[in-house]
Amino acid sequence: MTQPRQMDPGALLQVDDLSVRFRSDAGVVSALNGVSFAVRSGETVALVGESGSGKSVTSLAIMRLTPSPPGCQVGGHVWLRGTDGVPLDLLALPSEAMRKVRGDRIAMIFQEPMTSLNPVLTIGEQIAEAIAVHRGTARASAWDAAGDLLELVGIPEPRARLATYPHHLSGGMRQRVMIAIALSCDPALLIADEPTTALDVTVQAQILDLLRRLQKRTGMAVIFITHNLGVVAEIADRVMVMYAGRIVEQAAMRTLFQAPRMPYTVKLMHSVPRLQIGGERVVLEAIPGSVPDPTNLPPGCAFAPRCSHAAEGRCDAVSPALEEVGAGHFVRCVRWREIADGVGR
């Protein structure tokens, strides 16, 4: 089995040059174009970007839940440190071995709590199923464990809830159940794909709070996907900004908020709904233009058509490389230095 060129010793997950292409009626959709990043044990990494930038595809590719080829081609490597410390290339794993990774070493929660639970199975059955699949636990003890999990995720009267069906629960409660399922086998990594997007604001805050607490308690790493930078500030250690299937900026959370270098990140921050400023709701400005057509990406910087700093002949010539602009701070912009120096305006 191939070994990683180098897997950062502290890394739990390392994604190398991940690319995903869909073949559709409209043409080839380049959803991911060489995505590389690493996640260390116990850290929370936020993956942000507008809708359509490839966040969900990244998570599905890691889980190998993308459609099968040739409709969808996945390239690159996804290294996961096994329980024995040896890196596994998830994309090269036999499917049965990969199935055992899913829900056990890596768990996932989704954006749509209303439709993500099976309507004809009780909540208890759906949690216990995850435990039984990976632990082979007897029904009764899996059921007990499911009750404990519901208590852990803060569902009132957890044991009584086990026998109820998903439709009895609100969206927020269902998302808690999804979290309970995800946590059932003590995953080393949790991928949360916009877990709060479909929920209303107060519930969003509760779920975020819950995730933060659980993460502290279990020490799992979290990839937190969102299009909302406001949420990022509350939860992330590090942030990766994604645009048109590429990571365009990556930094520690504070660094990113204090000194964003990529014009896209800056725009994204201006579009954050800073909810309460002096009691007033701030109307956010949207980023002008729209994400590029993934079947026909512009040459050079994919953000160029929308970028107020775009320079003809430079930005649209070659695809900018990811440059280290500070400790652990990477940017994919040819003009970042000029812009930072105030020359770019």
Binding site: R23, P67, S68, P70, G71, C72, V74, G76, L91
Partner: peptide, 18 residues
């Protein structure tokens, strides 16, 4: 390296489209 991922139904979208 192109990697095969699997997600049933066993037929792929492209084959399905075809």
């Amino acid at each position: 390296m192109a990697v095969a991922t699997e997600t049933p139904p066993r037929v792929s979208p492209a084959r399905r489209a075809r």
